[in-house]
Design a protein around this nucleic acid. Sequence first.
DNA 1: ATGAAAAGCGAGCGAATGCTCACATTATAT
DNA 2: ATATAATGTGAGCATTCGCTCGCTTTTCAT
Lengths: 207, 207
Amino acid sequence: MARQPPTKPRKNASQERSRATVDALVEATARILVRDGFEKASTNRIAEVAGVSVGSLYQYFPSKEALVAAVIDRHNEEIMGIVRAALAEVADLPIDKAVRKLVTVAIDAHRINPKLHRVLAEQIPRTGQLRDVEAYNREIQTLVRAYLESRRKEMRKVDLDVATFICVSAIEAIAHNTVLHGAEMLSEKMVRTLADETTRLVVGYLR
Amino acid sequence: MARQPPTKPRKNASQERSRATVDALVEATARILVRDGFEKASTNRIAEVAGVSVGSLYQYFPSKEALVAAVIDRHNEEIMGIVRAALAEVADLPIDKAVRKLVTVAIDAHRINPKLHRVLAEQIPRTGQLRDVEAYNREIQTLVRAYLESRRKEMRKVDLDVATFICVSAIEAIAHNTVLHGAEMLSEKMVRTLADETTRLVVGYLR
DNA sequence: ATGAAAAGCGAGCGAATGCTCACATTATAT
DNA sequence: ATATAATGTGAGCATTCGCTCGCTTTTCAT
């Protein structure tokens, strides 16, 4: 049978061993990012830490960017899972209850892996493949907008797009800054206070 | 006279020619950042674009980081100039008038050089020397807090630090996202709407 | 058992980068 | 005019990095 030269399978993992390799590579990338920062994350080092050869690395990831993108994606999926769940859970609640929940969730989501979150926010240049973070932002925007639309009667008259933009930006920034500045030693009391205040900010604005 | 070996003056510019060299280097760095992004900004290229030799570059800047830091600093000083002026101008105004002015100024400040702003925000890893951006944030925080303190009677009872953090984070994020998403083609009408809404958000929160 | 596909290996290439250093030119003071 | 300091030059060193390729080992269907 005339086969195409099997020199370049490139990419997909089918056997279990290779899936483990891929996992090890992504995990190693994340660990290096957290421990040593973006600059120290060379492909050679990632392969070494993963206990894998560089050659194997390039069987599954076409570039260093792809590796970092995989880490970002994994982290964003974790966050989005929580956010999607919260938004579903909140769909039938009145605005004040809903906003409180969403604010809390936003802060919690940013606290999942604060060190990684910090590195991703501060050290990763959003270039080439890495620019797709915006997609997640757009999804959140859409979901929140849909919720607000369903609760329009509780709100004053506002342009929904503008209101969504304002609310999401504000909540996101406060959650983000809270985690970045406070590092990990955030008293639960402080978190509660910030959640209360942010809720007040947003709810007061919407109606 | 026994002098210290004049082999390593390093750094300070005293004659006019050298000050021009320093300027050219910073300007070239900024231009490369805007035109080609952070990755393409090598010291050799910066020197070339500045019409200066690499050697001269290293007489005034100990590293590539220092060069980028200088660009960031110049840009931040521009912004801080505007913000400081606005805060002074606003010191005797009531909260609603003051907030409106500050929100407008925040957006305008981010629009000074949107392309550079975007590169600095998206592509520059905040590492080593570059971490000092936080200092500007702290100054703004302090100035705003002082204003709010002087206007405490117009406000509800709040922890001033918390309120400052919330307001600054929100305003900054909205201004930032506005400029980043809308690029440069932002209708004046849209800007005004966003300023109005943000003002409402913040003023409603404070009292 | 066997052969082919899948997975893994790692020395090392070519390119780029940050930076140095031995030297040349210009400015300043006497 | 001359000496000294200030400023400027650029070829090239040392290093690192992303990545390739010829090869070996493992897995699996038959």
